[in-house]
Design a protein around this nucleic acid. Sequence first.
DNA 1: GTGCTCATTGTTAGCGTTGCCAATCGGCAC
DNA 2: GTGCCGATTGGCAACGCTAACAATGAGCAC
Lengths: 347, 347
Amino acid sequence: MSADSDERGASADAEARVPVLADVAQLAGVSQQTVSRVVRGSPSVARRTRERVEAAIAEVGYRPNVVARTLVTKRSHRIGVVAANASLYGAAMTLQGIQEAARATGYSVSLVMLPELTTVSVQEALEELRAQYVDGAIAVVPEDGAQDAVRAVDAAFPCVLAPGLDGAGVADAYWAEVAAARAATDHLLDLGHRTVHHVAGPSDWAESRARATGWRTALVERMRVVPRPVRGDWSAASGHAATLGLPLQEVTALFVANDAMAVGALSALAGKGMHVPDDVSVVGFDDVPEAAYYAPPLTTVHQDFAEIGRRCVRVLLGRLHDRVVEAGTSTPGLVVRASTAAPPLLR
Amino acid sequence: MSADSDERGASADAEARVPVLADVAQLAGVSQQTVSRVVRGSPSVARRTRERVEAAIAEVGYRPNVVARTLVTKRSHRIGVVAANASLYGAAMTLQGIQEAARATGYSVSLVMLPELTTVSVQEALEELRAQYVDGAIAVVPEDGAQDAVRAVDAAFPCVLAPGLDGAGVADAYWAEVAAARAATDHLLDLGHRTVHHVAGPSDWAESRARATGWRTALVERMRVVPRPVRGDWSAASGHAATLGLPLQEVTALFVANDAMAVGALSALAGKGMHVPDDVSVVGFDDVPEAAYYAPPLTTVHQDFAEIGRRCVRVLLGRLHDRVVEAGTSTPGLVVRASTAAPPLLR
DNA sequence: GTGCTCATTGTTAGCGTTGCCAATCGGCAC
DNA sequence: GTGCCGATTGGCAACGCTAACAATGAGCAC
């Protein structure tokens, strides 16, 4: 029972060595191959033999050497993840979802976090992962150049892109986000705002574009003026700065592309003496856990990032095993809180 | 130059196979061993031979198989990381620091994220990592039971605990945090508050205890009343709830154990019609990037989590190579913003 | 009894690398 | 010429496992 007692066993030359297949085989009086079969759960082992082997395994405390196994089978049961900045709530949660799903399926995760996403850096990261003999990779790299890199490598080495949907699926996720942004904008319009201003994310992120597209579509559809959006880099600081670049005297509603920037926007507005939601309504995107506690509680679009991560894993493993996977889409939904209200004119 | 052109090379039986040492050796007309030496940068290879081999490597596009190498050398050049919830800003940034430092040193990172930290779950995670043949592990698990688990495994398998300091160093990090909490409390006291209330984190986190200890020490040292602290779980929601459990009519200063809970506290206070900092001063801990944009901008203690992560890597790699590493301590420092002011009585 | 099948088990070769030791060779002191 | 040295290079045997095939033996129809 206890750790490595090795008084028994035929040749007790043991020096607290890590037990290998051969040790178990010898103790159980069978061939290595039989032990290997037991370990892998092969059906063609007689029950009595299996039991004997299992006892021996337990006795010596044998654990298979995954490195040797990988060398032979060419399957590491590990997946790689390329991610950007973990300080982004979405990325961090997606990573968590990936982890969770991978672990649940018996896969482990190798991580490469990139300080900046460029075609080159992502490509390098993927090559690095590949050199690590991971079976496939997930790239949580919503930036355009990065996505090109992924697609370039994909042929030789299975990669799935972060929204987690193959082929047409990517589009689904994109459109789901567009729809959510549109719903957010519609919500503001429904409250009576004439139009809605927009603080967008970096222009080379698909998310930014989806959210901006949804916003624009909502406005156009109702034939409203489409103001020129300002742009941030997802950070609160950039949201603050971008908001100050808006013609604030005429802004009554603001759709911000993520919650962190929305915090910056709230702060900028407060700095200008404008009250939210009395003077200006603000809607964010992501629904970070703090969103309900901001001042005021932020109306925002909820996203299930962990589910996105899990979905990526399903798709990737499906690909690895030549299975077609029904990925399913998780639709982001608007959460209305206290940062939105009717415009001042209508009060 | 281009990818895998294989018209040349003696036996062109090539089927787009991944090139191995033997292929390079044959092409260069040397033994595998010599190629291996070149690959590993051994000095005992004649210059001309090395050049020939390097050319052959480039020609066939050879890349060493790390799995085979690991099998022989018993070194994977990979480290494991066990972390908790990535939605915690500190954990996410620490992870990023780890990643960065590891990658810079030629190590890759395997990640296990745990939904909950318990002695058992952490122990399992470490065993899992070990079974993956990582060379060592870093545990970003500030919870007590988890830390016991790490220490238990450590003897057999090098692990460093998240604050990233071996032995006495752990204490250093702890005391640095105590000192910072104390400085935060002193700051409030200096402003004229009679005493300071405290919203603490989970009781089994070392961080919680350090911050509470610093707070208590500051109060005791100046012979102030030490109010009963309330407790949250690091989340904004819990900070909100905990704050409401305080005798708010007598609170003028509040030290909250992290920024997320401070957001909750701010929200709770606002809900009670209390103004910050006019009626109550609030200090947080961590200095998340949004802290400067909260309403009001939050006075908090800045921590360099990425540096903590990097330090962990230095310590671990030092241990792996039997080097003693001067880890150095990064001292957290108070950042005064607009959430603190003199108490109302003194105005 | 013979020949067949099925279930189980064993044997033999690798997988792609590195560690260890031996071999080769030019140069140099004697 | 002989012997020895250091610098290079090569050969061979692992590392711990699995794939493929061979071997064994029991059970059964004839």
